[in-house]
Write a protein that binds this DNA or RNA. Structure first.
Lengths: 148, 148
DNA sequence: TTTTCTGCAAACGGTTTGCATCGCT
DNA sequence: AGCGATGCAAACCGTTTGCAGAAAA
């Protein structure tokens, strides 16, 4: 469950010397909603969704906004097994991993880092200077299991 | 260090009722070479490399061959932080993870699954039916550290 | 001869960019 | 007035596809 609020996003825009314009507010609102539902989305999804209430918004602006929000650290990009890229709102702290339902695209964040000592051991054995790691777990959520 | 040989690839084509044609042999040879060096490549890279010795080979054939080799289980797709897709020859067994040098793109496979019990614990806690997971570790290899 | 595979070129889909205009401040 | 942000449409880039012809079997 994301705790992202519209005010946080607007504040971040202002803090960065950017304007919290009407298209940006509209898109931020949509993203906050999706965040509350742990729902993923692509930039294209965002554009389509915002179209309903703000049909004048251009596709490019949706892409640009997602990019900015990712730079702000509000969004995280997830690469699916089929190669598509989607985003979701980061709710946990700094370091976390994703548990993604392959049926409904809901994302649960695993707040604790899984086995950090295992990564340290790999670094030790390989001689690599580890700068980061990414863990993606796929499966079906309880709801979708029940619905099958 | 990959143990993939040209014969293995050609054998797989024949076993699948496909023809080990000239373009396919040329590309397989290149991939075997890259595999021996733990080197990653994109489909486009493959096309360019093969061009030197077989300039008549079409771009589409390179893409098609990579796809087939991936289906055969010889190649694994890795998504980089910058979103690009690359492939590398699988040397370890069924389940493994990647340790990728961000500087030289060399890949080391981590043969043992990292902390499988941690994934089981996550499944337990979340109620998800886990179907798979992917772990990517990024860093700098010893050679590139020394070269800096 | 029959079937698979190939090269070519055009199509494709998601994303980015150039640019004239718009609208905050 | 000035500058950032926008919408539009065209460009872009990696990848896929349709198809007539070439190569294996």
């Amino acid at each position: 469950m994301s705790t992202l609020t519209l005010d946080q996003v607007i504040g971040a825009f202002e803090a960065a010397g950017m304007r919290a314009t009407r298209p940006r507010r509209a898109m931020a609102a949509q993203i906050v909603t999706w965040g509350a539902a742990d729902q993923e989305f692509s930039s294209e999804d965002l554009w389509h969704a915002v179209q309903e209430q703000a049909p004048w918004v251009g596709r490019a602006t949706a892409y640009r906004t997602v990019q900015i929000l990712q730079d702000f650290g509000f969004l995280d990009r997830v690469t699916f097994a089929d190669g598509t890229e989607r985003y979701h709102v980061i709710s946990a702290g700094e370091h976390h991993h994703h548990l993604t339902c392959e049926t409904c695209h809901r994302v649960v964040e695993v707040e604790a880092c899984i086995a950090p000592e295992a990564f340290a051991a790999v670094a030790q054995a390989s001689g690599f200077a580890i700068s980061g790691h990414r863990v993606e777990i796929f499966g079906r959520c309880p709801t979708c299991q029940a619905a099958s």
